[in-house]
Design a protein around this nucleic acid. Sequence first.
DNA 1: CTCTGTGAAGTCATTCACAGCG
DNA 2: CGCTGTGAATGACTTCACAGAG
Lengths: 235, 235
Amino acid sequence: MKREKISELTTNRLSVYLRCLNALLANSVATVSSQRLAEDFNLNSAQIRKDLAQFGEFGVRGVGYDVRALRDHLTVILGLDRPHRAAIIGAGNLGSALAGYYGWSASNFSVVGVFDTDPDKIGLHVGANAILVQPLENLSRVVEEEMIDVAVIAVPGAAAQSVLNTVMDAGIKAVLNFAPARLYPRFGVKIKTVDLTVSLETLSFFLARPAAPYVNQTGNGLATYSNKTNGDEHS
Amino acid sequence: MKREKISELTTNRLSVYLRCLNALLANSVATVSSQRLAEDFNLNSAQIRKDLAQFGEFGVRGVGYDVRALRDHLTVILGLDRPHRAAIIGAGNLGSALAGYYGWSASNFSVVGVFDTDPDKIGLHVGANAILVQPLENLSRVVEEEMIDVAVIAVPGAAAQSVLNTVMDAGIKAVLNFAPARLYPRFGVKIKTVDLTVSLETLSFFLARPAAPYVNQTGNGLATYSNKTNGDEHS
DNA sequence: CTCTGTGAAGTCATTCACAGCG
DNA sequence: CGCTGTGAATGACTTCACAGAG
């Protein structure tokens, strides 16, 4: 085991491994080899071993990995053993949907506040669990009171950097950004951008050249998490 | 110019370049050098030139690129000169929000149908523009009638592969997937997955190790589109 | 014998650096 | 001159292949 910097590609895969392990656990599988994991999920077995080896020696030679133990280790490594609390900025379509998204709890996240600057939105209750929309000015106070550690930016691109600044001023260090904009974080702040425009336009490019569309980097039809294109599959 | 396979990393950047060019055009900038583009948007100028050179010689030596002409070229290259029509599968929170998302039209997309299998959802009108939710069985017929070429999967992970099969049976070749699941496409079908679970868990990992969190690959605080971590910024 | 952990090799992407055009 | 287009150099990630533990 070496304590080096962990690349984002690795952390993305850790999340996938955790998902796989939970599925195996649900099927009462007690032990799994990197080979078996790789086959089931179209990854390279050496990559799985290398990824895991960065955090410790979890495997048993000749046997494989204990599913539950590895699951627990990954949960701790990913920081999912402690709850996270999120604020959503922007109470439009997307922000409201995210406020009621069922996927948060599986990763030990909860949405504890929705914020907007539009007076027409403030005071509304949005999402499946009807969270109150507060003025953005409240953010800093609520972040402290509610121990919020993650912000989700769901505002138009033009407003995104300004919102990010407000979010950083409130002391938040981790941001999930849905605005189609390049954002400049301060030192020590992590942003993850989900850019639907880029995704759509890449699909459009594919449709525009059906003959020789892409380099298929793996040839196995499931490039999703096994290579650096990061979230894209093609065959 | 060489006619080779184009990597996904390149197409993602093309989309970003197009966005930048539109912004310049809105500011009445007529000509731009790769140097200037690189500075404004924290990219490497050689990479911009290399990306563009794969499709033709658009620049003028000693001068730079004509903003409007390059914009028009990229629009055609990305296939955005022709309209695309999308179906959304899954009328839950996320699917409904996407049906009313304002970002579609900027890329010449329109949402022309929403589908679900839940009898309670069928017949409802969802999203900002109140699109009727139809039974998934209608998909194949509507795809043909409405010339749909893109599908958006917004269903729970467990149902995603089955929905993808239905979508592919209907003849759709490009899919945007929001389900947290690894999907197996058939040959000639392109899938782009937006996995919110992976994004959240990566943020959680960052928060769990504030000391030596990541390799910062560029050091400029805007790694977003300039490197292979693809959508992530950190400083 | 099986399967992990890992150095070495291979593949792919980015950046450098410059020849050459306008 | 300045800037593009591109070979060469560098760097990053993945895969191979095997020593060694159990």
